[in-house]
Simulated scan of single mutants.
Amino acid sequence: MNCEVITPDNEHEYVGFWARVGASLIDCVIIILIIMPLMYIVYGESYLYSEDMLLGGTDALLNYVFPLCATIAFWTYKSATPGKMAIKATVVDAKTGNPLTLKQSFLRYFGYFVSTIPLGLGLFWVGWDKKKQGWHDKMAGSVVIRIRSKGTDKVTFSQ
Rank of each mutant, 00 (worst) to 15 (best):
Y64S: 02
K138L: 08
Y109K: 03
Y64M: 03
S142D: 00
G141N: 07
G56A: 06
L123P: 05
N10I: 11
V15D: 06
V29D: 10
N10F: 09
P82M: 13
P37C: 12
T7N: 09
Y64R: 00
D129Y: 10
A140G: 06
V29Y: 09
D129I: 12
V143A: 02
W75Q: 02
L38P: 07
F113T: 11
L119Q: 03
G134L: 12
D137G: 02
I145T: 02
T58N: 02
N63K: 10
T76R: 04
E4V: 15
D129R: 10
I147Q: 11
N2V: 10
G122T: 05
E45T: 12
I34M: 12
S149C: 07
L25K: 07
G83R: 03
N63M: 07
T96R: 07
V144L: 03
A86Y: 03
G16L: 00
Y112P: 10
L61T: 00
G111D: 04
D137V: 10
M53Y: 10
H12T: 14
L121E: 08
D137R: 07
E51T: 14
L54S: 09
Y14M: 05
L121N: 11
A80Q: 00
D93H: 03
F157C: 13
N2I: 08
D93M: 06
T81V: 03
Y43R: 04
I72D: 02
E4Y: 10
I72F: 06
A80L: 01
V144I: 11
G127M: 14
K103Y: 15
L48Q: 15
A140K: 04
T71M: 02
I87C: 07
Y77T: 12
C3K: 14
V21Q: 02
G141A: 08
T81L: 02
A73T: 11
L62S: 00
G141D: 06
S50M: 12
L48W: 14
S115T: 02
M53R: 05
D27V: 06
D59W: 03
L54A: 09
K154H: 08
L54H: 05
K88P: 03
S105W: 05
D52R: 08
G134M: 09
A70V: 05
E4K: 12
M1C: 11
A89P: 00
Y40M: 13
A86T: 03
A23V: 01
T81S: 05
I31T: 12
Y40F: 15
S142I: 01
I31K: 10
V21D: 01
L102Y: 15
L102K: 13
S50A: 13
L38A: 10
N63W: 04
W128M: 10
D137P: 04
R148K: 15
E11W: 04
A94K: 06
L48T: 13
P82D: 11
T71A: 03
K131A: 07
Q159H: 15
K78P: 01
I87T: 02
L33Y: 10
W128E: 06
C28A: 13
K131D: 09
H136N: 09
E4I: 14
A60N: 08
T156G: 11
V15M: 09
F124N: 00
L62E: 00
K138N: 06
N63V: 06
Y112R: 14
M53I: 08
S105C: 05
I26A: 09
N2W: 07
E11L: 07
E45P: 04
G122R: 01
A19C: 04
D93Y: 04
